[in-house]
Amino acid sequence: MRAAVWHGPRDVRVQDVPRRAPGRGEVEIAVAYCGICGSDLHEYADGPHAIPVGEPHPESGRAAPLTLGHEFSGTVAEVGPGVTGFAPGDRVAVEPHYRCGRCARCAAGEYNLCAHFGFAGLMGDGGLAERAVVPSYMLHRLPDGVSLRQAAVFEPAAVALHGVRRSGLRDGETAAVVGLGPIGLLVVGLAVRYGAGRVVACDPSPARRALARRLGAAETVDAGGLPPGAADLAFEAVGSGRALADCLAGTRHGGRTVLLGLGGTVAVDAFALVNNEQSIIGSVGYRDCHGELIRLAAEEGMDFTSIVTSVVPLAEVVRDGFRALLDTTEEIKVLVRP
């Protein structure tokens, strides 16, 4: 079968790889759509960051070279021994978190903080392929009326929903969203859905600001344009020290900032942070979000595909996917259709 395999930075190859039968507790998926994530772009541009090299990941048993892609949906093709609840032909969304089920955090239900934290498509073979084999616990069956294209966006939507939950958003609060990539845009829509009285969206791209308004933002501003102290909480969805500083300056005394962006070391004015009694909240991945997203799509008609700007074939994933996303701000979410 064909797959997009990471060999090193700027070295992703669409190549033939052996098709693997599902083992005990595993399911083979015929992939319908797979999104390209910001994490994938980091790995392509200057990785490895999360991809294991040399030492295999403890849950997947895999190390580079491996197949990328963790935002995917498809149809069950084959089930392995011991799998119950799924059968060939089932349409599914994939929640690609690996979890050991044995550590303290898994026992507490916080599987996104598993001691063996990881994602299929980063720490193991993923969905940028014609077929993907994953543990059955990653699957969510889709009801009629929820498309496979919609389901491919549930993974980044889950990141956004988990961040909104972590924020402690209360009805009527003003929320600022700094950075209108896929995650930031999804936060805009979900913050409105979960009770924000006003959402202010911040990004240098006029097209992304316009999309944020269509998703429910009451106001949009250019980068650095957040009014001082105007928001109760802010979401940093860029991964930069400048964006974090904008969030802290744009939130009131006692305000909260949720970090969703993948950034490195940043400097924070701890004196101001203490005196203003502000909070910085980390948010990683998601847990127990996919069921709610399926419900929102099936019962409330929420359309998460509004952020999708292109659908490209697997053969052109490097040129029309990775390179296009790095070279232009016009692309937001690219789906690959193997």
Rank of each mutant, 00 (worst) to 15 (best):
193 R>M: 09
193 R>K: 15
197 G>D: 12
197 G>A: 10
198 R>K: 15
198 R>S: 07
199 V>K: 06
200 V>F: 10
200 V>R: 05
201 A>S: 05
201 A>Q: 02
202 C>F: 01
202 C>Q: 13
204 P>F: 10
204 P>S: 12
206 P>T: 08
206 P>N: 09
206 P>R: 12
207 A>P: 08
207 A>S: 15
208 R>L: 06
209 R>E: 00
209 R>C: 09
213 R>V: 12
214 R>G: 12
214 R>W: 00
214 R>P: 01
215 L>H: 11
215 L>M: 12
216 G>I: 12
217 A>L: 06
218 A>Y: 09
222 D>P: 02
222 D>M: 01
225 G>M: 06
226 L>R: 04
226 L>Y: 02
227 P>I: 01
227 P>L: 13
227 P>T: 04
228 P>N: 14
228 P>D: 11
231 A>N: 03
233 L>V: 12
235 F>N: 00
235 F>Q: 00
236 E>Q: 15
237 A>I: 13
238 V>A: 08
239 G>N: 03
241 G>C: 09
241 G>M: 01
243 A>V: 06
243 A>Y: 11
244 L>E: 00
246 D>M: 04
247 C>V: 03
248 L>H: 10
249 A>I: 02
249 A>M: 07
249 A>Y: 05
250 G>H: 05
250 G>R: 05
250 G>P: 01
251 T>M: 08
254 G>N: 08
256 R>S: 14
256 R>Q: 09
257 T>I: 05
258 V>Q: 09
259 L>E: 03
261 G>N: 03
261 G>K: 11
262 L>W: 09
263 G>K: 04
267 A>F: 01
268 V>Q: 07
268 V>C: 11
268 V>T: 06
268 V>F: 09
269 D>Y: 10
269 D>G: 08
269 D>N: 15
273 L>D: 03
276 N>M: 13
276 N>C: 15
279 S>I: 02
279 S>T: 09
279 S>L: 02
280 I>A: 07
282 G>H: 08
283 S>W: 08
284 V>G: 07
284 V>N: 13
284 V>T: 13
285 G>H: 07
285 G>N: 11
286 Y>F: 11
286 Y>T: 08
291 G>C: 08
292 E>K: 07
293 L>T: 07
293 L>F: 06
295 R>Q: 07
295 R>W: 12
296 L>M: 15
297 A>T: 08
297 A>H: 04
298 A>P: 04
299 E>S: 13
299 E>M: 13
300 E>R: 12
300 E>H: 15
301 G>Y: 04
302 M>G: 03
303 D>C: 09
303 D>I: 06
304 F>C: 07
304 F>S: 00
307 I>Y: 04
310 S>F: 03
312 V>C: 07
313 P>C: 11
